[in-house]
Design a protein around this nucleic acid. Structure first.
Lengths: 157, 157
DNA sequence: CAGACCACTTTAATATAAAGACTAGACCAC
DNA sequence: GTGGTCTAGTCTTTATATTAAAGTGGTCTG
């Protein structure tokens, strides 16, 4: 798929980030899981505004698990159902999503409200970032969805 | 190439960032121009540790110009020679490169020295970030390379 | 026990990206 | 002017990724 025969140890961190992370579906899937609280395959597949195919979604989820951005848990509801959760590395990637969103909203598709919304999430400051990250960490640890999704945030992105 | 028939206005900024920016060569080329002070086609091509092909480099440079990450100037030396400079949008993308580098150095290819080096450049704090960005802005405005490359930085990345 | 739901997998056509070889034009030394 | 070098690419062929649509093997629900 992505990444075949490179030697990670020999690469510079920027180049490595390009090789590993840089795929148009990875940010979208992370957004759906982290901000929209989607955790199941079909939940991600069917709500996808971007129209990902099931084959691509399956390959990306596997890839993101091997990359250690996601981890899989079995659902209690249904024996075959899997739930995808962010790992610590996945949580740490969320501010980068906001950083990308800020850039896009400033230079590509001007949207001052999105800049104002996203900047606190990657600049290392602000209560909002802490609120989001601590919520993601709780979900990561307890594998349960708290009843306080940041819908007002997801709504914008 | 990348991006064909999408309607940017309809996309969320994270999804749009994925569509537009997310390509394994874009971060590498930006790094070479921003941090290694390479401005010519062959200068980027021949020093490429990652082994980009001339066809790929040509297509990416054009793409990055249409994206407004880069702008082209003619060289005084040679009628056919072009020089690539960062635009404001390109400069604003540099902190994202550092953010990606930090993530990689923390979760993928552990390197505490690189985390320590790169974190000040994306967290919105520190003199180092200001030093780098003001240097990039000077080059952007005057289109000349100052004699103070941040070699100690480039050396690490 | 039928029908829905689950997470994929398969297939085959299409689209995209890549490396390596090659090129048109500009420049320089002799 | 002629050979060689430099410029930024293009061309061709090959490899890979993506897609829609259908299928799979199993589970769960009424």
């Amino acid at each position: 798929m992505l990444v075949s025969t490179i030697v990670e140890e020999e690469m510079c961190p920027i180049g490595l980030a390009g090789y590993l992370l840089v795929d148009k579906w990875v940010p979208i899937i992370l957004r759906d899981i982290a901000l929209f609280d989607r955790r199941g395959f079909n939940e991600i597949l069917k709500n996808s505004r971007e129209g990902i195919s099931s084959a691509t979604l399956a390959s990306r989820l596997q890839y993101m698990v091997t990359l250690n951005l996601l981890q899989v848990e079995k659902s209690d509801d249904h024996a075959q159902k899997k739930l995808y959760f962010l790992t610590e590395a996945g949580i740490a990637f969320v501010p980068i999503l906001f950083h990308l969103a800020s850039w896009t909203a400033e230079f590509r598709n001007p949207a001052p409200d999105i800049i104002a919304l996203t900047t606190p999430f990657h600049s290392g400051r602000g209560d909002l970032q802490e609120m989001l990250l601590s919520r993601l960490r709780e979900i990561h640890i307890y594998k349960t969805v708290q009843p306080t999704p940041m819908w007002w945030l997801a709504d914008k992105l």
